[in-house]
C-alpha cells in the first residue's frame, strides 16, 4: 500500500532549516503541545481550515469553494512519491550541503511515511535531515539521516511537562541514544520569555550536550509570534508570549557555548 501522510506545506529554498539550500516538508500532527508553537497548524493530526476574515469577499458561496484565500484548507494527503517529486525539483540546487528536511509537526509520529521518504530521498542522492522533538527513539529513521536537528525546549522536567504536555526524560534519553548511534546533530532551544530564558536552563542544557559526542552546535532560536496569527486563523486561543530581546539572546548565548 502506498504510504501517505497529511502535509501542511512543502517549502522550497528553505535556508533556515539546516545547511545549504533545502526543501522542508511539514508533516501534520505532533504529540507535544508546546504553548508557544509557531506552527500550530501542524499539531492536530486531522485536516483543518484556516479562516482569514480580512480576505473574505462576502460572496456567500463558501460551499462552492473559496478562491479569495479567506478559507484555506490545511493538510493535504500526499504519497511519498508525490512528495519526492516536489523535493526533487530543487535537487540541482542542493549541492553537497543541502537537501530535504523532514519537519512538522513531528516526523517521528509519522514513522512509516518519514522512513519511506528519507529512504527514497537517499536513493535519489538527496541529503537528508529531520527536525524532531525526539519524543521517541527510532533507530531505523535515525540511520537514514545526515543531520538531526533536535529540540531541548526546557531542561527541567516539570517545567517541560507544564509547557509542552510531555516529560523530557525520554527526550533526553533518546537524544543520547541518537548520539551513541553517531548521528550528526544540531540541538536547539526556542527561547521564550518567562518560560526558559534563564542562564540556568541554558547552562544545564549545554552541560548535558557537552557529555555527547556528535553535537555540532547548540543553537538558541528566539521565539517569534507568527504562531499567534495562525492560531487565530484556526479559531484557537493562542498563548501570548513576549519575544526575547536581542540583549537577552546575547546574554544567553554565552551559556550555550559548547567549547
Amino acid at each position: 500500500m502506498t504510504t501517505k501522510a497529511l502535509i501542511t506545506d512543502i517549502q522550497r529554498f528553505s535556508i533556515h532549516d539546516g545547511p545549504g539550500i533545502r526543501t522542508t516538508v511539514f508533516l501534520k500532527g505532533c504529540p507535544l503541545h508546546c504553548l508557544w508553537c509557531h506552527n500550530p497548524e501542524t499539531v492536530s493530526f486531522s485536516q483543518e481550515t484556516f479562516f482569514y476574515p480580512e480576505k473574505c469577499i462576502s460572496c456567500g458561496k463558501c460551499t462552492q469553494g473559496c478562491y479569495s484565500g479567506a478559507r484555506v484548507v490545511c493538510g493535504r494527503e500526499m504519497t511519498v512519491e508525490e512528495v519526492l517529486e516536489e523535493v526533487k525539483r530543487d535537487a540541482p540546487y542542493y549541492g553537497c550541503e543541502g537537501g530535504v528536511t523532514v519537519s512538522g509537526g513531528e516526523p517521528l509520529a509519522h514513522r512509516a511515511f518519514t522512513l519511506a521518504l528519507l529512504r527514497a530521498c537517499r536513493a535519489a542522492g538527496i541529503g537528508t535531515a529531520m527536525e524532531s522533538s525526539m519524543y521517541r527513539h527510532d533507530p531505523e529513521i535515525l540511520a537514514e539521516l545526515d543531520l538531526l536537528m533536535a529540540d531541548i525546549k526546557i531542561f527541567d522536567g516539570d517545567l517541560h511537562r507544564r509547557y509542552t504536555g510531555m516529560d523530557n526524560a525520554e527526550i533526553l534519553a533518546n537524544i543520547k541514544k541518537a548520539d551513541e548511534m553517531g548521528v550528526p546533530m544540531i540541538v536547539r532551544t526556542p527561547i521564550v520569555s518567562g518560560v526558559n530564558d534563564t542562564a540556568d536552563n541554558i547552562a544545564k542544557t549545554a552541560a548535558f550536550l557537552k557529555s555527547l559526542h556528535h553535537v555540532a552546535r547548540y543553537e538558541l532560536l528566539p521565539y517569534h509570534p507568527l504562531g499567534q496569527t495562525k492560531a487565530a486563523a484556526l479559531g484557537q486561543d493562542a498563548h501570548v508570549f513576549e519575544a526575547p530581546t536581542k540583549a537577552k539572546m546575547e546574554e544567553l548565548q554565552v551559556y550555550a557555548d559548547l567549547s
Binding site: R12, F13, S14, I21, D90, P92, Y93
Partner: peptide, 12 residues
Amino acid sequence: FRTDGAVTAQAS
C-alpha cells in the same frame, strides 16, 4: 507565484 516565494522555483 508560490506561497513560499521560493527563489529556486523562480530561477528554474
